[in-house]
Design a protein around this nucleic acid. Sequence first.
DNA 1: TATGAATGAGAGTTCATTCAT
DNA 2: CATGAATGAACTCTCATTCAT
Lengths: 209, 209, 209, 209
Amino acid sequence: MPTRRDEARALFRNAILDAAEAVIADRGFHAARIHDISERARIAVGTVYNHFRTKEDVLRALLEERSEGLRRELMPVPGEPESFEKKLAVRLSRVLAYVDRHRSFFLVALEHGLFGAASATAEATLHGKPVRQMASVKGAIAALIQEGIAAGALVDEDPARLTRFLTGTMKGFILGSLQAGLPSIQGETPVIVDLFLHGAARSPARRKR
Amino acid sequence: MPTRRDEARALFRNAILDAAEAVIADRGFHAARIHDISERARIAVGTVYNHFRTKEDVLRALLEERSEGLRRELMPVPGEPESFEKKLAVRLSRVLAYVDRHRSFFLVALEHGLFGAASATAEATLHGKPVRQMASVKGAIAALIQEGIAAGALVDEDPARLTRFLTGTMKGFILGSLQAGLPSIQGETPVIVDLFLHGAARSPARRKR
Amino acid sequence: MPTRRDEARALFRNAILDAAEAVIADRGFHAARIHDISERARIAVGTVYNHFRTKEDVLRALLEERSEGLRRELMPVPGEPESFEKKLAVRLSRVLAYVDRHRSFFLVALEHGLFGAASATAEATLHGKPVRQMASVKGAIAALIQEGIAAGALVDEDPARLTRFLTGTMKGFILGSLQAGLPSIQGETPVIVDLFLHGAARSPARRKR
Amino acid sequence: MPTRRDEARALFRNAILDAAEAVIADRGFHAARIHDISERARIAVGTVYNHFRTKEDVLRALLEERSEGLRRELMPVPGEPESFEKKLAVRLSRVLAYVDRHRSFFLVALEHGLFGAASATAEATLHGKPVRQMASVKGAIAALIQEGIAAGALVDEDPARLTRFLTGTMKGFILGSLQAGLPSIQGETPVIVDLFLHGAARSPARRKR
DNA sequence: TATGAATGAGAGTTCATTCAT
DNA sequence: CATGAATGAACTCTCATTCAT
């Protein structure tokens, strides 16, 4: 049972993470000064350090939180459709809705390996210490792929490759859509699913989608 | 006709860029100190500044150079196959060979928007000044997509979306393969082309590839 | 009502300005490193930057402060003598006492235009940004001259010229006395006033003063 | 007899000094880069170092040259008037004509003690090494004062004080006039002489001059 | 001797982190 | 625990000087 004190702590923690998300999304991790973050949260710099050991820890906590959010959206939910394609669409749609809710920060999050494959800069920034939840996201995606293979819905290709293909496709659409300023990335779900499953080639069977 | 002096200049410039590529790939842009770069190039710090105005300019020059390299590999070459699929495979193969030649730096380059969609950090780092050649790469990819559509080889979808799909797929495989430590990304070409064109869904016609 | 915190701020600010005055007087502005100043004030370098935006700003603040001090001494004070000569003597005496209190820094201050006419170096150093209070000093001197003319005590010459004459005379004595190491410049007041008013020519009426 | 080689050397030396005068007058000594000077002289930086040991030496040579020029103008010339006042006027006029010929540099020269009393900055810049000819200028002025005292034309005051008074007056007018942008400082000679000799006080005998 | 690129010590400034209040 | 000023290591960039050509 959380005490009043615990609740206060959580309040501060959240305020800091919100501020950090906005500032880091805006300027990138390196240009984001702790001072900026504390100012946006309307608290003192020292207070940030009462809740996080280092600036880097703030970023890591943020990534944990977003990873956890993503992972949740990727998990099965009661009442999901049976067919893999529909299930994929449903889950992807939830994921992209989540991305839409944290739009700008995802530019940063992706760079830091949210779907796997962090940049060198990111690695250096986090001193190589892994973000726990990030592994779960990868795991959840890999599990989804496995499911598809097991169900016979996906080609019997090396799962690692299919995972790269799926994350690449998702990232391509997320980044592209953010950059293009699309109001909703979630809206792209059908296209993404279709391209991921059936590719970009024209075939007699698929005229226009 | 380049004089001896011009040659010397180019020599230094290249040495600096090579050193910068290695150091930045290794530690990321921010952790890479000019001092590290000059040390690796076995020259003095000041010499770096005789060739580049700022540290940021070194990165930009590097991105220009790699972009230009990529663009070149994407351009048509005499004697290319007629069919779009084969042409795509040939070009992609060349591009990936280039990536293989500059493996580790591509982790950095991608983050800085080499195929479009730079991260917030990258934007901040470059102060929003665009890397000229990077636009050409995007253009070359878009042109390739257009070609495919015109030839009737690709679905009649919004070209911007197909571009996101292609770049996403490429980036997914490049990053994934780098991270996995695959010896050659070029070797992935057939899989990439196949997935891009025909998707990941199992179909009666495609058992195993 | 100044809070404890405001007092602390002022304490630091003064310590910095005192240290800067000493160091700059000793080595000149360019040779004075921020590190020297902070060391003399027994604080950290960063602290200097918590109180002043740039090194240049420290100098400017110092000049403002000394200018303000000078201006104050030049202002009328209740109970001053009526006659212009005596009034001039009284004010000049106050001014020179102030100079005595900040002896060595005045070498720097004069060079930076404390009585008008900054050197090229000074202009460049301050980036042409004017020191507000310095204008007031010039104004106070000009006012004094005007007063003398109006009172019929000074020749009816172009006031700008008389101002140059007065400031030149003052600066000549200040610099000369400082260089000669005179213990008190204030003690020169009578000579200065006499020479300023009656010149250096021998006349039947003035044997020795 | 100067050989062709000597002439060439002198040509370079002069070109450098001319360029240095202009650049230093414009930006002050510290902001004047050797590179700027060599560029203005249309020669290479290295060449400057073939003629002067250090940047500081260039300044010193410049000051020597201007000091020597001033000293020359202060020396007696055949056919000068007998009366001290007229002699003073004649010499001062020559000096001010020289100043006019090197207008802007004098802002710098004065600061570096051309008439005595260098600023702290100047002392630091020249590392305390004296400029030989500068002593001669002071000597020539002191001699002039002595002459006036001996002739009974000046009050029997401490010569050092009268020297400070004269140099102060001259510097006041030079700086003031330069700053005011007067086209000719030489034209001020009569006023300067009059004020120096008879002061600024109105007396029954002197209505308007 | 003129050249101008290479050199590297040095300086100003920033900002994550600490800690007394 | 919140505060925010103090701290000082670290980093980029400058520029007087050198030296191979």
